[in-house]
Amino acid sequence: MPAFILQRLLALVPLLFIVSLLVFSLVLLIPGDPAYMLAGENATPEEIAEIRADMGLDDPVLLQYARWTAGVLRGDLGTSLFSDQPVLEVLLERLPVTLSLAFAAILVSLLVSIPAGVIAGTRPGSLADRLVTLGASTGLAIPNFWLGLMLILVFAIWNGWLPATGYVPLTEHPGAWLRHILLPAITLGLSAAAILTRQLRGAMIDVMNQDYIRTARAKGLAWRGVVLKHGLKNAAIPMVTILGLQANYLLGGTVIVEQIFGMPGLGQLAVASVFTRDLPMIQGVVIMAVFVAVFVNLLVDISYGYFNPKVRPR
C-alpha cells in the first residue's frame, strides 16, 4: 500500500507541472492590468510603469514563471496585492472553513443517499422506490443558491432556530460550529445526495440480481445481512467513483454557498480576489483547490482497494 501511494504521488508531478503553467498563465490571460488596479484611477503612466517594474511584470515571461515556480516550491505564494499579507497565510486561515463545509456536505449526502439508495434499490418499483426517485429528481432540479435562501428564510428568519450567517471554528466551540455549518452543509450536500442516491439505487438493483446474493441467501443469512454486507459493499464501488467526482464539484459549490451564508472560506476569498484582481491570491486559491482535488482523488483510489479487491495492488 505505501508503494501504491508513492506511485500515485509520483504520478502527480507532471500533473502539477501542467497546473502550474495554467495557473501562471492566468497573469497573462486575465483582462486588465493589476498595476492599473493598484495605482488607482488618477495614476500617471509613470506611476503605473513603476508599479509594473516593482512587480516584475516587465521581465520576460519565462523569467517570471521561473521566479514564481521557485517561490511556490518554497511555499511562498507571494503576498496579496491589497492586504500585504502572505497568500499562504490567508489560504491556511480560510482552508479549514471550506474543508469543514465540504466535509459536512459530503456527510449529509452520504447520510441521505445510503439509506435512500438501499431502500429504493432493494425494492425497485415499490412505493418507497418511487418516492426516493422523485425526491432525487427534485433534489437535482433545485439550484443550491435558491435552496440556501429558502433554508435561511425558514430556519433562521422565520423560526430563528439556526443562525443565518457566519462561522465558528470547530476547535473553538463544536456546538456553535454545528449550528453554523448545518444549513450550508445541507444546501451544498443536497444535489450530491440526489446524484449518489440515484447511483446507489442503480448499483443496488444490479448487485441484488447477482448470483452471489442468491448464494448468501442459500447460506441462511437474513435479508438485512445479505443487503448490508453482500450487497452494499459491491454497490459501493461505482458510488465511490461518483463520490470522488462530487467532492470536486462540492469544492466549486462552496464558492456560492459561502457567499450566501457569509462564511469566510476559500470560495469567498476567490470571489473577492477576482473582483480586486488580486492575482497572487487567485493563483493561490487555484493551487490550493488543485491540491485538495488531487488529495480527494487519491483517497478515492485508495478506498477502491478496500471495496474492490480486484484492483488492490500486490
Partner: peptide, 13 residues
C-alpha cells in the same frame, strides 16, 4: 451453484 465465478462474492475472502 453452476457459476463459481459469479456465485462467490468478489468483495470478500
Amino acid at each position: 451453484f453452476q457459476e463459481s465465478m459469479t456465485s462467490l462474492n468478489p468483495a470478500f475472502t
